[in-house]
Simulated scan of single mutants.
Amino acid sequence: MKKVHVILKKEDISEKKLSEGGKVSVVLDVLLATTTITSALANGAAEVIPVLDVTEGMNVAAGMEPETFVLAGEIHGKPIDGFVYPIPSRLREMINGKKLILSTTNGTVALRKSACASKVYISSLLNNRAVAESIKGEAETVIAICSGNSGEFSLEDFYGAGHFIDCLTDYDQLEMTDSAKAALHFYRGASGSAFDILSSSRVGRLFARHGLAEDLEFASQTDVAAIVPILKNGRAVIHQTALKGE
């Protein structure tokens, strides 16, 4: 029986505990890093390099030929000079065949902190089902990690964790911690669509105020991406693509 736990924000990650016992981590930053990574890889990005901060991103970019990468990022939701704002709608047409260097306040930091797990999956509402299908029978312990919002609880990530666990129940019998049960019950009991839930969150309201409704709607889609990204040697790459009909 597979054990499932949910971590509510990146600040709660214990790298020591995560590295023990062959645990698999599934990192979610629904608004927006893991959604952006999934979208970028689906649109032909060679790989995505999650960095801890702006300085690291610029250092990574300095070692590459300008035509081979796109540098994207935000700090507490605000644009960064010299960086593309990291939303799918702005990256979609420029990323094919290139490496995406990505710096975000929460999601890329959560990914880096989770790198000590035996395997790190990158998930979102777009591809939770594909990730769950890939994990079936693979690991005894799965840790769904909500990136959170600058040290605070994130409604959209908790909803996304619940959706992921709901998908996982199709493939495995689960032994859930209280946090995993809470996320699953919240997802199953939530009234309204995924778009309604995301729109009501703090970050979702910011998206609406700043004219990013297109990306909010995009991030609210469920089970539309068949790709399964993993973090491998510090890079997000496609682990596999689920077959149609699975």
Rank of each mutant, 00 (worst) to 15 (best):
I122M: 01
K232G: 01
L102N: 15
S89M: 12
R188P: 00
R92C: 11
A117S: 07
P229D: 10
L41N: 15
Y187K: 13
V51D: 09
R90E: 12
V70K: 12
I135N: 08
K10T: 07
N127P: 02
P88R: 06
G73V: 10
P86K: 13
G97S: 10
D29S: 05
Y85I: 06
C167F: 01
V70L: 12
M94C: 01
E67Y: 13
K9H: 15
D196M: 15
V120H: 12
D196R: 13
K119N: 00
D223F: 03
N233Y: 08
L243V: 09
A46S: 09
D196Q: 14
S103F: 02
E152Q: 15
P66V: 09
M58A: 11
Y159E: 02
L41D: 07
K99F: 10
F153P: 02
T177H: 02
Q221R: 10
E74S: 04
H239T: 03
V6A: 13
Y159I: 15
V203Y: 01
T177Q: 10
A117G: 06
L243H: 08
L125R: 01
S103A: 11
F186H: 08
L231V: 00
D53P: 04
S200F: 02
L18E: 07
E11L: 03
D157G: 07
D157E: 04
T38M: 01
R92P: 07
V237R: 12
G137K: 11
V24T: 09
G245P: 04
F218I: 12
K119E: 13
T222S: 03
